[in-house]
Design a protein around this nucleic acid. Structure first.
Length: 472
DNA sequence: CCTGGAGTTGTCCTA
DNA sequence: TTAGGACAACTCCAG
């Protein structure tokens, strides 16, 4: 009982820089203990396989940054805190807020309980604007992005500037769970390969940001649509895990904007705005992960076809750009945004499978799997969301491939079995004449599949299904 | 209350 | 070849 300290509880803020809770504690306490709890008790859905891997490496990185002082537990936070409180003198417990419905519920109860025993504080460490601050004049939440961002966010306060502190770590002697005991890492080949594409941790997020602001941003507006170009930041996993703060990115963009007034920067900022919008939707419509935001879609005639779903997951639909995307996802834990839309649209509007099946697969495979962004984006693609793509907007995977991967570099990288086809046939391998395919020993239906469905036909079927919902 | 403009990311047909 | 309009109608949002 002679040990005295304050606790910072790490959650989705796995960084030391611009961490509001850490800043606050450093100003008010001499001894700080940093804690992480792997909570598999409260979530309605467990972490996906990719997320677990990312978390494993993130905790290792964070622990090193903290001189091996990161205290780790597994289980229900209430139980864990209750034990700590009964064994040590805790001056204060503090954390940065999370916004997932299950976490809000958990933290609310927990806060009431903890407040009986110590002081508790929470901060905004992952959003530019709090979802409860950005409301229409009548007090209700926005459902359309443009007014949400332009009228709501931009007319509200400027996001606060990033701030760092000197951490006063307390060299505690409390027994921590070993990171390996959390069993987040995997021995599967998949896991070993997927991780090679990333450097996980706060310092690498900063490196990526700097590279992006030196080069990628310069043609961001156009280049971000081309999966083979290096114009996207690829910071989404780091943002999700809090290894970089949105405020750091926002103000980095503002700084650059002072030197050059550029629409690329404005568009990058608005992409951060989309992330805010998704969190706002999740906060105000907490059933977003499981229920159509537009109720009329509850009656939509989704099909159930395990065979189609399996081909989609494996990247064997016969449409090269879709298959390239699905394989990029499997091989790297990431998929380029443009291709996410194409692959998503294909699942929902050509295969007519429920968006929730796609949402769950992405949840399992993406390093940036995020409750808000993943759910809201799938609802957008499916047309079931508030501010969704209109139902007649069905991506044509052939046209999209030609338009956004004109030299098929992205396709060739992930679908190497068709790389020798002449560019003329690479977007439609089934149209390659026999003499041409023979000359390169390529056999359609053997080396690469025939299309799983026909585009024109499946498009019309979808339009018909969607129009059956009219005036419901 | 009423009014009117607008709505991330597309496709297809026609002139 | 290319640019423009239809697609279908609704809800959102602000004045």
């Amino acid at each position: 009982m002679n040990e005295e300290f304050a606790i910072h509880w790490f959650r989705q803020d796995l960084r030391l820089n611009d961490n509001p809770s850490l800043n606050y504690l450093s100003k008010n306490h001499k001894n700080i203990v940093c804690l992480y709890i792997y909570d598999e008790v409260n979530p309605e859905r467990q972490l996906g396989a990719a997320s677990k891997l990312w978390l494993h490496h993130s905790l290792n990185d964070l622990n090193i940054a903290l001189d091996n002082n990161l205290l780790i537990f597994k289980g229900n936070p209430e139980k864990i805190f209750s034990e700590i409180l009964s064994n040590y003198k805790i001056k204060e417990i503090s954390w940065n807020r999370c916004y997932e419905p299950w976490r809000i519920k958990r933290d609310k109860t927990l806060k009431i309980y903890l407040k009986e025993n110590t002081s508790v504080n929470s901060f905004n460490g992952s959003l530019l604007w709090e979802p409860w601050d950005i409301l229409k004049n009548d007090g209700s939440p926005y459902k359309v992005f443009t007014p949400f961002y332009q009228r709501g966010c931009l007319k509200f306060k400027e996001p606060k500037k990033p701030e760092n502190c000197k951490l006063k770590l307390y060299n505690h002697k409390i027994k921590s769970t070993d990171i390996n005991e959390l069993e987040l890492n995997t021995n599967r080949t998949w896991g070993k390969n997927i991780i090679k594409h990333w450097k996980i941790g706060e310092s690498h997020a900063e490196e990526l940001m700097n590279t992006f602001f030196l080069s990628g941003i310069q043609d961001y507006s156009e280049g971000r649509n081309f999966p083979n170009k290096k114009n996207v930041s690829r910071l989404s996993p780091y943002l999700h895990w809090g290894q970089i703060s949105p405020n750091t990115l926002w103000h980095k963009a503002l700084e650059l904007e002072k030197k050059i007034d550029d629409k690329n920067i404005e568009i990058f900022k608005s992409e951060l705005g989309w992330r805010e919008f998704f969190y706002s939707l999740m906060y105000h419509f907490p059933k977003i992960q499981n229920e159509n935001l537009q109720k009329k879609f509850d009656k939509f005639p989704w099909e159930s076809n395990d065979h189609f779903f399996s081909l989609w997951k494996k990247g064997l639909t016969g449409y090269p750009i879709v298959d390239a995307g699905m394989r990029e996802l499997w091989q790297t834990g990431y998929m380029h945004n443009r291709v996410r839309m194409i692959a998503g649209s294909f699942l929902v509007k050509n295969l007519l499978l429920h968006w929730n099946t796609g949402e769950k697969w992405f949840w399992d495979c993406l390093f940036d799997a995020d409750y808000a962004s993943n759910s809201a984006s799938w609802q957008w693609v499916a047309g079931t969301g508030t501010d969704a793509a209109p139902y007649f907007r069905i991506f044509n995977p052939i046209t999209q491939g030609k338009k956004f991967d004109p030299n098929a570099e992205y396709i060739k990288k992930y679908v190497p079995e068709i790389k020798d086809l002449p560019i003329k046939y690479i977007f439609t391998p089934w149209e390659c004449p026999k003499d041409v395919s023979n000359s390169i020993s390529f056999r359609i239906g053997h080396d690469y599949p025939y299309p799983v469905v026909e585009i024109k036909e499946s498009r019309e079927k979808a339009l018909k299904a969607f129009s059956s919902l009219k005036s419901m």
